[in-house]
């Protein structure tokens, strides 16, 4: 066996293996998202965040502009505190932007949708969103639906 040829082939093999690892890291996993974490962080309080997870998407007009970076509990107000990391190029969001928790598809993932307000000032790091709407809990929705039927029945009589 020609030593040179062997060594070249082994070199190619190792390069291919490393390239595959690199591809898995860059193209398959969320490494590139980690890397773009230069951005600013804002917080928002929600009454209910059930289904929302760290790293859930944060979108505006359907475009992902950031991620949920932390979810914690406020023991005084009994609310959830959600930290949102917005990518740094989106630095012109108005101060009175509102946040709602939506569901992608009927049973899909929860994500936060932002809606711009009309304020002149822009959101900065450590700012807090005032207007929030909580996660939709299916059981609550159904019970409200059923209740309204019962109420209707009563008023009909």
């Amino acid at each position: 066996m020609n030593t040179r040829k062997t060594e070249i082939l082994v070199g190619l093999f190792i390069a291919a293996g490393l390239a595959a690892l690199f591809m898995l890291a860059m193209k398959v996993s969320n490494l590139n998202i980690y890397n773009n974490e230069a951005g600013y962080e804002i917080t928002a309080n929600f009454e209910n965040v059930s289904g929302l997870k760290v790293k859930s998407a944060v979108t505006m007009a359907g475009v992902r502009i950031g991620r949920v970076s932390d979810i914690s509990f406020d023991a005084e107000r009994f609310e959830a505190i959600v930290k949102i990391k917005i990518e740094s190029q989106y630095n012109t969001l108005p101060k009175d932007t509102s946040a709602s928790i939506y569901t992608a598809g009927l049973l899909g993932e929860k994500y936060i949708g932002l809606e711009a307000g009309g304020d002149e000032e822009n959101l900065k790091d450590k700012d807090k969103l005032k207007l929030t709407q909580s996660s939709l809990v299916l059981e609550k929705l159904i019970s409200r639906f059923v209740d309204s039927f019962i109420d209707k029945d009563k008023s009909d009589k």
């Binding site: 093999f13 190792i14 291919a16 293996g17 490393l18 595959a20 690892l21 591809m23 898995l24 398959v28």
Partner: peptide, 16 residues
């Protein structure tokens, strides 16, 4: 020891 992780990575990448 060196080849196995590389082979597995290539397998996954090609599979994707």
């Amino acid at each position: 020891f060196i080849s196995m992780p590389l082979l597995a990575a290539i397998f996954s990448a090609v599979g994707v």
